[in-house]
Design a protein around this nucleic acid. Sequence first.
DNA 1: TTAAATAATGAACATTTGTTCAATAAAATT
DNA 2: AATTTTATTGAACAAATGTTCATTATTTAA
Lengths: 221, 221
Amino acid sequence: MPRKTTTTDRRIQKSKMALQESLLSLMQTNDFKEITITDIVLRANLNRGTFYKHYQYKEELLDEIVDDVITDLIASYREPYQHTDTFALKDLTSSAIKIFDHVEKNATFYTLVMKSRALSGFQIRIGNELKQLALQDLDNWQSNPDINYELYASYQAYAILGMIMEWIQDDYKYTAKYMAKQLLAFLQDRRMNTVYRTKRQMPHPTGLHQEGDRPDDIHAK
Amino acid sequence: MPRKTTTTDRRIQKSKMALQESLLSLMQTNDFKEITITDIVLRANLNRGTFYKHYQYKEELLDEIVDDVITDLIASYREPYQHTDTFALKDLTSSAIKIFDHVEKNATFYTLVMKSRALSGFQIRIGNELKQLALQDLDNWQSNPDINYELYASYQAYAILGMIMEWIQDDYKYTAKYMAKQLLAFLQDRRMNTVYRTKRQMPHPTGLHQEGDRPDDIHAK
DNA sequence: TTAAATAATGAACATTTGTTCAATAAAATT
DNA sequence: AATTTTATTGAACAAATGTTCATTATTTAA
């Protein structure tokens, strides 16, 4: 009969910790692609079988590390909401703004993951191309000296990439024409800067941190 | 003395073609991660050494396939500019809009690359998390029934991711505070919808298609 | 504190990878 | 058409991967 699994075995925790730290430290000096499982377990001082007991491949190990960063990202984003009872533009923007603090705090990690080719370059390449295209356009439009047009180009480029990602994940359930109209609507709609609403409970839909989450009242209306 | 390399050897072209087609067809049924070099060359009917003569790993082969898609992306984006001499909002938006046609045209490929875990999930995960966060906010603001807030959330989420990517690639040369201010400025600045400018020459800064590119007059002022 | 449960180990194994090299085939140049 | 250049082949190789299994060590639950 299997035991009722209340907490994870400390041996597992230790092993996973050692593996995570080993990978992170190897990534400081080596390209992710070049790091072997053997490298990781050697530095972690563990048997190779132990790695394979917990993960299929190193990407899975990296994913677990990413979990922690994302948890922190969410916490950062939520933080401004803690101190107020109503939504205001101030809250909305300041929570978005907290994300930059979070990235800065985890700068080492972000650089590591983004630059170390841990992710295949496809999205980055698409992003960069779109940015170049946007930049050429903006060249002809830019007039406001307070705006950093390199940043703005990247902002616009990834915004469109975001629409595309959503579109793909929904199996192209919209037409290209509909997508285009939505984009125009996004660029034109300014209303949200003026409306005020009352704050609601905020469930956490991602299921990332199952552990500490109380069920709360999801259906608050 | 080395020969003057004017065109690529037909044998190379054939081999590369066979490898590309092989990989694409394998990706229809198999997870990218699971496809081995041996699988690829078997289906391509080539020696394994031939693969390694041209590529280091399968990601590099995929990159070359991506090149073609990106070339088409750029062409699609540029297309609206071909028929006009001045920039207007109409051009700007219609060129952005052509991107959706391009994606729809290459839907099979996009789905393949985005869903087949060809890219490690990091960017997708960050994107999705940011989207969820944006969505919760928008829940409290949405008022315009013409706007698809799922799409809009993804749009906003990736827009911020775009700023972050730019920030990282520039080695955090701005402060978090500066990033935040820029974001606010982007959300508020509406000017570009009203300004008109004259059209300029458009160089192609990516170096993607070295082959067919005539040098032209890049420095046209 | 003891017994049961289970994680980690080390060794062995077939497979796959990445690399080399001389022989052969195909293409480009003259 | 003949010759030079170069890509592909096939075979062989060490190294790394992924998997297994009985043994040992550690942790948990009673």
